[in-house]
Every structure is written in C-alpha cells, then in structure tokens.
Simulated assay, not measured.
Amino acid sequence: MLSLKAKTLDDLLYNVLKSLIEEGLDVNPTKGKNKEIFGACLVLENPRARLSQTESKGKAFSAIGELLWYLSGSNNLDFIEYYLTKYGDYSDDGKTIHGGYGPRFWNNNNCDNQIQNIIDLLSKKRNSRRAVIQLFDSSDLSEEYNDIPCTCTMQFVIREGALKMSVYMRSNDAYIGLPHDIFCFTMLQEIIARELGVELAEYYHFVGSLHLYDNSLKLAEGYLKEGFQSLNVEMPKIPDGSPFEQINLVLEIEKTLRDGKVIDIDNYKNLTKYWKDIVLLLQIHSKFKAKDYSSIDSLKKQLIYIDYEQIVEDKLRRIRL
C-alpha cells in the first residue's frame, strides 16, 4: 500500500513517480507494459495547489478544457479533442466518448443530476456520509467499449466547516492522467464548496492500479530531473457565492472560441476576475492552436494571476526552442 501526503501537486507527483520507478511491479495489461503499485492513497493537503509549476507537466490549457467538458455535461469527441487530440483513439463511433464523465455527472441514467443531488443533500444534512457520485456503472462491463470510466466514485463530506473530497479510481496513469484528474476533481471540490458556502479541506485520491507506462518512463525520469518542485504556489480562491452562473458564461464563451470565432473579453462585464483569467487562458489556447503567437503576448499581459502568465511564457519558450 502506497500512502503519500503533500501540500502541492508537484510534490505529490514527484513522490508518486519516484515510487513507481523504484518499487513498481512490471505488468502487461491490455494497454501496454507498465510499472504498477496496487493500492495507493494520495492526499493533497492544499487542493488549490493543483497546477504543476514544472516545464514538462504545466498542462493548464488541456486540464481546463477537460474540466469544462465535464461541467458542460457533454461526452462529444469534438469538444475534448480540441484540447486533447488523443481522445479520438477511445471513441467507439467517432462522435462521442462512452466513458465521458459529463453525462454521468449531470444526467445519470436519464434522471439523476448527481452534482445537484449532493449539493441538495449537504445543504440539508451537513454531516451526511451519503454524498456520493457514481461514475463507473455495471453496464460498462456488459459490452466492449474503447473507453470506460477510470473513476468509480466521489464522496464529499463537510467536517469542521470545510469540504473534504475522496475519489476512488480503479486505474490511474500516473504520468498523463493523474495531474489532469487531480486538477479537475479538486476544481469540482472547490466549486461545490463555494456553492455550499464552506471552506476547502484536503483532497484524498485512492487508486487500485496506479501505474506508469513504459513509453512514459523516460518522460517521468525527465520530470524528476527538473528538481523537487516544492513551491507552495496555489490558484486563487473561487469567489464566494454560487459559481454556476459564471461557469455557464465561461462555457458559452468556450463554445464560441472552439467554433473559431473571435471574442472581445471586455464585452463580458459580468465576468469576475477569477473567471476572466480562465477565459483569457482559453483565448490564449485558441491562439496557440492557430499558431498566432504574436497575439499571445498582449493577452498574457491581461492575466491577473501571475502564475498563469508564467505557464504561458513556459509554453511559448518551448515552442520557440
């Protein structure tokens, strides 16, 4: 059993990858050879320290894109391929991703809005232990699909006025999947905490098969050589109050950008500073995809959160090398 606790995502990733390289058992399942530790408990003490500060793992754009895919309730391939092109390998019909979390969050079995259900439950019963979201379903084993959820359940509890979250995953790719999962899930944790009017507590990530594929081994070793990234850098706090009106506006803007249209962010007067930064990152991502690097500098200067600016500069530098 691997048990690790850290204040930042980078601290956690460093120790996870080091443990897998040194202690992982060589296995060869369906998707290729890997080093595996079966049974892991990873604790992120500060869920806002969810973005990697390293050169190789600074994946803010794709992580934000995946989060918005979940929040939109969509499992459409064209949405997520805009941010993560490899998702096309996991579609059964070239249009959707069977295991996409969006419909499972918002319209599970065509009747349950699971996110709203747990918000309603914890609003009425602050000490409840029943606020559980189920993503993996028994029907996922009834047929062969190219993609089924790696995440089985999410549980939310309020303790001492703060929201804790625990996630159980049947399988987790430590190099590629884990950073995205922690980003998206801790963002969901904070969104729900804001909706409930409580503070943010620790995030617990339980994994059955935690693994590192052989084809990611050299990349993981390169990440470790970047140094122990113990910078306690955290994202700003989501503003108090219900965040869903802002999220819906961001989703509307995201769709406009993904459709190849241009926006003027100054036209969106209702955006708070927090969500304006997220939209600016979406704009910058669209410019990266169009290879319009000259426009990125002016957008970058509008970012309020300085660490986002550093992430953009790092990506520009890697492209220009």
Rank of each mutant, 00 (worst) to 15 (best):
G161K: 12
E190G: 00
S166M: 14
Q302H: 13
V16R: 09
N232I: 12
H205N: 09
L200Q: 08
A131W: 01
G88R: 13
K289Q: 02
V207L: 08
Y14E: 05
S91I: 08
K269N: 08
H205W: 07
K124T: 03
L281W: 11
V207M: 12
S72C: 09
W69R: 11
N34F: 05
I118D: 14
R129L: 06
V279L: 07
V250I: 13
N270E: 10
Y213W: 06
D147P: 00
P236I: 09
K125P: 00
K218A: 08
K18H: 08
L163R: 12
E313I: 15
V198W: 14
A201W: 00
Q283H: 07
E226F: 10
Y90A: 08
I319A: 10
Q53Y: 06
L219G: 09
L249N: 08
S209C: 08
Q229R: 13
Y223Q: 08
I284L: 02
S216H: 11
I118F: 15
I191H: 10
D78L: 07
Y145W: 00
K301P: 00
F183C: 09
F206H: 12
M1T: 11
E190W: 01
S72Q: 15
F206E: 03
V16C: 09
K237V: 15
K261V: 03
L20R: 11
W275N: 03
D147L: 15
E195F: 11
M165R: 05
D120C: 05
I119R: 15
K276N: 05
N267F: 07
C152V: 13
A60K: 14
Q246L: 13
I80P: 00
F136T: 05
M187H: 15
L196N: 03
K255I: 05
D89L: 07
D277V: 15
N110P: 02
S19Y: 01
K255T: 07
L17K: 11
I311W: 04
I148T: 14
A193C: 07
T186E: 09
C152Y: 11
Q116R: 14
I319H: 04
T256E: 14
V233W: 11
P149T: 07
Y87A: 05
E195W: 14
I21S: 04
V312P: 01
K255P: 01
F136V: 13
S72T: 05
F156P: 02
S139L: 12
I158A: 09
K300P: 00
D240G: 12
G260Q: 11
